[in-house]
């Protein structure tokens, strides 16, 4: 049985249809990346899966006992709130000390456990959020544009870490990303979203699909070529 199955999902905001007829299933251990233009409903899809958005139609079926770890796009912490990383890890439920230390180590932030949340850099904050998501030993890790604001080396190392965590824990990963070239290299499956699922499959299949090209142009193929053998490259796109 899949970890999670989405059937005919419809989501509306103020009468506007953000997502419609979305079907998707996620299996154990696979890394799935959702790509799509701004406003295509990527974040909404993730927020619906974690229960922050109520769908207006369709359903989301969790495998019984499914544990989800969620890493939000960003977490602006008001400077008025004093909160150490370690205390943050124990919200809303206190976790065993050893588990907290292990999760922090896995996300490579063990040394800043006593730091104040409000003073962390963007990259440190992302890894703390990742550590917190890993704390309940999730079957499915959900990340919403986790590398936003990181530079290229930071982005690359973040995705390497995700891949390593998947290898160690066997958790599935569902994430949204704009870093198309990294996504293509690091994902098992890519879902191209634009209100509905335009295409869904292995990165090389999606990259060559007409629906994907219509959204992103074939220019992104250039970036993909850094990582994969290229056989559909075109030079006739004047504008990107």
């Amino acid at each position: 049985m899949s970890l999670l199955t989405i059937e005919g999902l419809d989501v509306r905001y103020d009468g506007r249809r953000v997502l419609h007829d979305v079907d998707l299933s996620i299996d154990s251990g696979e890394i799935i990346t959702v790509v799509g233009p701004n406003g295509s409903g990527k974040s909404t899809l993730l927020r619906t899966v974690i229960g922050a958005v109520r769908p207006s139609g369709g359903r989301i079926i969790h495998r019984p006992g499914l544990r989800i770890g969620y890493v939000p796009q960003k977490l602006p912490v008001d400077r008025s709130l004093p909160m150490t990383v370690r205390r943050f890890m124990a919200l809303p439920d206190a976790a065993p000390k050893a588990a907290v230390e292990a999760a922090l180590a896995r996300a490579d932030v063990a040394e800043i456990a006593s730091s104040q949340l409000a003073t962390l850099s963007g990259g440190q904050m992302q890894r703390v959020l990742l550590a917190r998501a890993l704390l309940n030993d999730p079957h499915l890790l959900i990340l919403d544009e986790p590398t936003q604001g990181l530079d290229q080396p930071g982005t690359a190392s973040f995705y390497q870490r995700i891949a390593a965590i998947r290898a160690e824990t066997g958790c599935a990963v569902l994430m949204v990303s704009h870093d198309l070239h990294v996504v293509m290299a690091a994902s098992d499956r890519v879902i191209c979203l634009n209100g509905h699922v335009c295409c869904d499959g292995r990165p090389e299949y999606v990259a060559s699909a007409p629906a994907y090209r219509a959204l992103f142009g074939s220019g992104t193929q250039g970036a993909l070529a850094l990582y994969r053998h290229e056989h559909t490259h075109r030079h006739d796109e004047a504008a990107e």
Binding site: I50, A52, Y70, P72, V77, L81, M83, L91, P92
Partner: peptide
């Protein structure tokens, strides 16, 4: 207080 989505994800 930290974040609405974060809270939802934690139930």
């Amino acid at each position: 207080t930290l974040g609405a989505d974060m809270a939802h994800a934690a139930g």
